[in-house]
Every structure is written in structure tokens, then in C-alpha cells.
Design a binder for these strands. Sequence first.
DNA 1: TAGATTGTTAATCGATTAACAATC
DNA 2: TAGATTGTTAATCGATTAACAATC
Lengths: 211, 211
Amino acid sequence: MRRKRRVPEVVVRRLAMYLRVLREMDLAENRFVSSKELGEKVGVTSAQVRKDLAMFGEFGKQGVGYQGLFLGTELKRILNADRTLRVCIIGAGELGTALARYNLRRYQKERDYPFRIVAIFDNDPSKVGVMLDGIKVSSMDQFKKLVRDLDVQIAIITVPAQSAQNVIDMGIEANIKGFLNYAPVKVNTPEDIKIHHADVSLDLHQLAFYL
Amino acid sequence: MRRKRRVPEVVVRRLAMYLRVLREMDLAENRFVSSKELGEKVGVTSAQVRKDLAMFGEFGKQGVGYQGLFLGTELKRILNADRTLRVCIIGAGELGTALARYNLRRYQKERDYPFRIVAIFDNDPSKVGVMLDGIKVSSMDQFKKLVRDLDVQIAIITVPAQSAQNVIDMGIEANIKGFLNYAPVKVNTPEDIKIHHADVSLDLHQLAFYL
DNA sequence: TAGATTGTTAATCGATTAACAATC
DNA sequence: TAGATTGTTAATCGATTAACAATC
């Protein structure tokens, strides 16, 4: 879908926030929500909400607003979140195991949480075989095979900075298209690969600047 | 400093990346770095690098580039990272303890890592008193006092979504100006407070969209 | 000097906001 | 119908890129 290439990341992020707000609203069948209301809960203008949605179609009724349940369903579809997305974690250190547990719990508890951790990888022999909330840590030797068998679509990278490029290259070779990189390093990826940097220290720097 | 209000967040983020790249370069005294070289390593154009730096002064020499060590020092100063910044973590669950350990280790290992975890808070009595890499988990009863005594400047929020607004309000009252919020919820803050949302599920949604 | 690269201005691009006709 | 709110166009704002004179 070439179309999707033209959707700015910031719009996608806001769509996910609209969806979250709708989920929290506990919608009755006929509850309508206006762009004003949605905007206020997310912290953007009503024009922004309408503009964002307009990129994907017409979802509202003039004078009335958006039927909450319907808009939620549509947003899920747009975000590819209307089915379970299979995620692996590469790097079973502190951060990797915490993110695994965190996501597994959300997947169990939250109806509709679409991200499911299906595999965890680490090369440290002392970690391989350890069970984490029902998921066994696997060696990177098994990586390509398991990614294929489990149909993994997204990888969360929590390896040391110096290994990040290498494991992401392996992920690309195994046909993973999306990476969430917690390693504090820039990695090079082809055009068609989506990588998001979630570097804690960059976030902290951003706060420190405004102190 | 009113000036700082006008610096876009994305510029601050890039400054932090320039600094990281400079650190990795292991600079000799007279090593000069061009905007082209810096841009390539960070993944932006040379014009962008020069524009970003120009917001804060003149740091280079025509025909030569930027003296690496000098630019590094200046960037640290601009980013408020030329001193140790004291950070607390609120919420000693999976994610909170992992982020505490992760940051403490970086602080120990990386020369110049400016963020030091000085306190961890949780209200669960079974967690209060537990030691985490040399730091004792404290009850929220102690929050205001400890934040003042330890001069905490930044808080990392890893409490459940429904508690986030409340603990951030407490942080603001204790004079903390910067919050890194991992809870998947929008919180309201006054103008002069800086809050950065590091919601894992938003990042994953962003990747899922482009699958 | 000749070659290189800065700092900065102007041009371009893209995203946000404002405004309003259409219409429920 | 009258009031409200959408979808969309036009205006504004802001950030990125291109270009180049200044100068090391």
C-alpha cells in the first residue's frame, strides 16, 4: 500500500490516542462523540481530529459527531490493530524482561490489546531456556526459524548498543518490518523498514533541556 | 529563560544525538568534525546540523568544521548535561525497577552519563524498604521530603494509568519540572511543566500501521 | 592561493489552524 | 426548522532544504 507511506507518523500516533480515549469511554451503543470532545481528551484541536480522520474517509455525521463504537472499530482497522500482532523481544536483560512481562500482562488484562509477545531471544547461555511468564527464552540460533514459525511481525530491541545493528539486520533478513529500538544508537535500515527509537536517555535529555 | 521556550523539541532531540555521536568518536584534541560528517552519523542533512547549532551560537570555523571536543562541551552545556541530574522513579513495578537498574548501570559505566537515579517510590508495603542496586524503595509518604532533600529534578512515572495524574500532581507540588511518563494515559499539566510520553503501546501502534 | 565548510538567507515543503458551506 | 458539527478549503505557521557569500 503506497498510500500509507504518505501518512505522517504524528498522525498515526494521534490515531492511536483517539482509539485509547474511545476505549476508556466505555461506549454505549448510541453514544456519539464530537471532534471537540475527542480533541479535548487527547490534547489537540477539534480541527486536528477531523483532519486526521479525513485522511482515511468519512466517519461522522454533521451536527451529531462520530458514533463512538463505530469510530473505534474503524480506527482499529486503520491501525492494523483489529487482529493480534505478534511481537518478539531481542535481548533478555533488565529492560527486555520488564517489557516482556509488561506487555504480556497488558495482553492478558486489557481486552483488545493487540500486541502479543510470542518469543524472547538472548545469546547468553545462562538466560536461554529460562521461562518468563510462560515464554521460554530462546537462543539467537533459533531466531530465523522461530520468527517464521510464529509469524513475528515486530521486534523490540533491548540488546546493548553495539549489538543493535547486527540483530536488526538479522530481523530484516527474517522478514520483520517494524522495530522498536531501545538501544542508544542509530542503526541503518532500508527504506521499507520502519524503525522507532525509544531511547530513554534521549527522552531524559529532552526534559533536562527545559529545566 | 524565555529563550528556551522557542526551541522545538525535535531540535533538542537532535542535539542530544549529536552529543552521543561525538562521545562515540573518541576525540583527539585537534579532531575537527564537519556538519556533513555529523549529519551522516545521525541521519540528517548537513544543513540541518548547522541550522540546529546556529540557534545557540557559532561553534565552527569556515573551511574546517567544528572542533569535536569543544562542540561536545558546548552541547553538554546547552542540554544542561554538564552536571549530574537527579532523577527519581515513581512506581517500583516491572518497568520501574528495570529502568532504575538500567539507568544506574549506565550512570556507573558511561563517563558523562548525566542522569542519576537517586530515589525510587512505591506505595505497596511489600516493596517499600526493598533495596534495588543500592537504592531503597521509599513510601510515597516520604516523597515530598526526599525530593527536596535529594534535589530531584526529573521523575520517571511507571505507575498504573489510573495513578499517573495523581503522582504527577504530587511531583509538581514537590517542584519537579520534568516528567517522563510511561503510563498509557494523557495527563494534564501546567504550561511550565515539561512532560514526555514514552508509552510503549503508542510506539508499537506506530510500527503496526506501516506493516 | 585554492578548496572546503561555515553561518545565514531565501525557497520549499509540510503540518496546523481557521473558517465555512453542507447537512444531519 | 434551528442548532450543531462535520468535511474541506484557504490561510497561517513552522520546519527543512537549497544555495551561496564569507572566510578559514
